[in-house]
Amino acid sequence: MSRSLESPTVTEHGVEDRDGVLVRDITYAGSAGEPVRAFLVEPAGTGRHPAVLYLHWFEPRNPTSSRLEFLDEAVARARQGAVALLPDLTFPWSVDVVGDRRDVEHVLAQAARLRVGLDLLTTRAEVGKVAVVGHDYGGMYALLLASTDRDRVSAVVAMNVDATFGNWFATFFLRLSGDATIAYEKLFEPVDPIRLVAARGGVPVLFQFAEPDFYVPDSTRRALVSLAEQPKDYRLYPDAGHQLDDTARADREAWLAAHLDG
């Protein structure tokens, strides 16, 4: 999907030097001019760099349910020469799920804000290939971007994602059942990961799932992975929990290096 790209307006609130890696605390203007708080992580040195857009999970009352989740990982990638952007996500983190078509509009608005994050990265002269890494709801948005922005996304990592947006909303937020669940979930069909994984235009994907996972049953992950077009990698992590573990992180970092570096 082509669009005219402009670098968004960025305000810097502070910067931390982590042994040569710069972690900038920034706000950038979203798709409707709204402020998006983020970390921008920059490596030392000049030249061409790959970049990663990191999208965090939803875990209420956990400080890592924010741009903090992937910060250490982003710093480690920066030591290998990558730029990273880590925005705070808002739906459903700070915007209420209401149970009607407005929820779909909120998903689309969140995706639009993330596309501005891609603008911020891809309009930088030093940025080359861009990957999107997402966990939980963040992973579902990552798959959405890999479909809508496959001309700009070179690789995507989806960690413990559901196959549809509406399922978790209906089950854990709204407590719907029966026909009400079916009608509500149907609203999300155009943006559901299970419909988008086959529309990536060749963008490589790494699926990472815990086994077992209370939030993502075996049947859901198998259906999602089976419908995903190639190229794809699928890895399971026994007893890693929905948060996943250090083994998953090491696999993810190696996979990103193979698809972005060089």
Rank of each mutant, 00 (worst) to 15 (best):
residue 6 E to H: 11
residue 13 H to R: 13
residue 16 E to C: 06
residue 17 D to Y: 08
residue 19 D to A: 14
residue 21 V to C: 11
residue 22 L to M: 15
residue 26 I to A: 14
residue 28 Y to K: 09
residue 30 G to S: 15
residue 31 S to V: 13
residue 39 F to K: 01
residue 40 L to Y: 11
residue 42 E to N: 02
residue 43 P to R: 05
residue 45 G to D: 04
residue 49 H to Y: 09
residue 60 P to I: 06
residue 66 S to T: 13
residue 66 S to C: 11
residue 67 R to Y: 04
residue 69 E to Q: 15
residue 69 E to G: 02
residue 75 V to A: 08
residue 78 A to W: 01
residue 80 Q to T: 10
residue 83 V to A: 01
residue 90 T to I: 06
residue 91 F to K: 01
residue 95 V to I: 11
residue 98 V to K: 09
residue 98 V to W: 05
residue 101 R to K: 11
residue 105 E to H: 11
residue 109 A to N: 07
residue 109 A to Q: 12
residue 114 L to D: 09
residue 114 L to T: 07
residue 120 L to R: 06
residue 121 L to S: 09
residue 123 T to D: 09
residue 134 G to E: 03
residue 134 G to I: 02
residue 135 H to K: 03
residue 136 D to S: 14
residue 139 G to S: 02
residue 139 G to C: 00
residue 148 T to H: 09
residue 150 R to F: 12
residue 151 D to L: 12
residue 161 V to N: 05
residue 161 V to L: 13
residue 164 T to K: 15
residue 165 F to R: 03
residue 170 A to L: 04
residue 174 L to N: 09
residue 177 S to A: 15
residue 181 T to D: 04
residue 189 E to D: 14
residue 190 P to S: 09
residue 193 P to L: 05
residue 196 L to I: 10
residue 196 L to D: 03
residue 196 L to Q: 09
residue 201 G to H: 10
residue 207 F to C: 06
residue 207 F to G: 02
residue 214 F to H: 12
residue 214 F to S: 13
residue 215 Y to H: 11
residue 216 V to H: 02
residue 218 D to E: 09
residue 220 T to F: 03
residue 221 R to N: 00
residue 223 A to M: 05
residue 223 A to Y: 00
residue 226 S to E: 15
residue 228 A to G: 02
residue 228 A to S: 10
residue 232 K to E: 03
residue 233 D to C: 01
residue 242 H to T: 02
residue 242 H to P: 02
residue 245 D to G: 04
residue 247 T to F: 08
residue 249 R to G: 09
residue 252 R to G: 05
residue 253 E to K: 15
residue 253 E to F: 15
residue 254 A to F: 11
residue 255 W to D: 05
residue 257 A to W: 10
residue 258 A to P: 03
residue 261 D to A: 14
